[in-house]
Design a protein around this nucleic acid. Structure first.
Length: 280
DNA sequence: TGGCAGGGGTTGA
DNA sequence: TCAACCCCTGCC
């Protein structure tokens, strides 16, 4: 690969580490104490942060970096609009500067279809396998995430070979649905969130939880509130202590009513906190 | 070393 | 509402 330029951006209220390691993306790998290798706008990049500066090496524009990391978003204003309860400040203080990324809709859809009953490390391995098997090599050992048309024209077995298990059938069918124009990811961007969610759930392997992840991590719908087993656990522990008979339906309703238009940020900070807080 | 439980859900009956 | 779906990992 020819030498590529570095972009250095002044940043505030931004922290690369929790942003890349809070479970919203599966395409980054840590390469050093504060250095990661990943993808922005379809280009292989390296990223590192020193006090007040974010550096990106690769063939990407400043605008693309700002968009991907949402560097111009008024993070503190948004967090300030979440409920002032006793719990959220603890989660905010645990990972200050964690930002929700604006990722590619197809890669996000595919990754979260693969996420069911999988741990983060395994999802990262699947992401890498799909890239190596179906992607285009942009730099030595660095493969793009394959477009849905490529997966659709392949076989379900080829996806099984990437250790997808039963998820291979889901991903292959979802790729076919997109290739055949049954659903348009570009069109979803123009739809109100509730309708966009219903459209996403027409894709094979996309239920309510995965749809909310796609809305939040790819389409910037900050009101989306994905509830997985960890978030369900933290909601029960913090907001319904000692109440055993709270249904999942009740939790969904509570989250929708309580957290408001920036619920997704509450979700992501709580999620990151409960998974990584010091063991007592 | 091998067996077993469980993991960041969705589907279909 | 609930079993079935793949298979990797951690634990004993």
């Amino acid at each position: 690969m020819a030498a590529t330029a570095s972009i250095v951006l002044p940043v505030h209220d931004f922290a690369l580490e929790p942003t890349l390691e809070c479970g919203q993306t599966f395409s980054w790998q840590r390469k050093g104490p504060q250095r990661w290798q990943g993808w922005i706008d379809g280009q292989p990049v390296e990223a590192w942060q020193t006090a007040g500066r974010l550096s990106i090496q690769g063939r990407v524009t400043r605008a693309a970096v700002q968009e991907y990391f949402q560097l111009n978003a008024p993070l503190n204003d948004w967090l300030a609009q979440l409920p002032r309860d006793a719990h959220l400040p603890i989660a905010f203080a645990f990972a200050p500067g964690l930002r929700i990324l604006r990722q590619d809709p197809w890669e996000t859809t595919a990754s979260f279809i693969c996420s069911s009953l999988k741990q983060i490390v395994q999802i990262q391995q699947i992401n890498q396998s799909l890239r190596q098997r179906f992607g285009m090599e942009m730099a030595p050992g660095r493969f793009t995430f394959p477009d849905f048309s490529i997966l659709a024209s392949g076989t379900e077995q080829a996806l099984r070979d990437c250790k997808l298990g039963y998820r291979a059938r889901h991903l292959h069918r979802a790729a076919l649905q997109l290739q055949q124009g049954e659903i348009s990811l570009a069109e979803i961007a123009r739809r109100p969130t509730a309708e966009a969610r219903q459209d996403l759930m027409k894709l094979q392997g996309v239920g309510e939880k995965v749809a909310n992840c796609i809305l939040l991590f790819a389409y910037g719908r900050l009101e989306a509130f994905p509830i997985d087993v960890w978030v369900e656990r933290v909601l029960r522990e913090l907001y319904f202590p000692g109440k055993r008979r709270v249904t999942s339906q009740r939790l969904r309703q509570f989250a929708a009513d309580y957290f408001g238009p920036y619920a997704g940020y509450a979700q992501q900070y709580l999620f990151h906190w409960i998974r990584n807080r010091p063991k007592v």
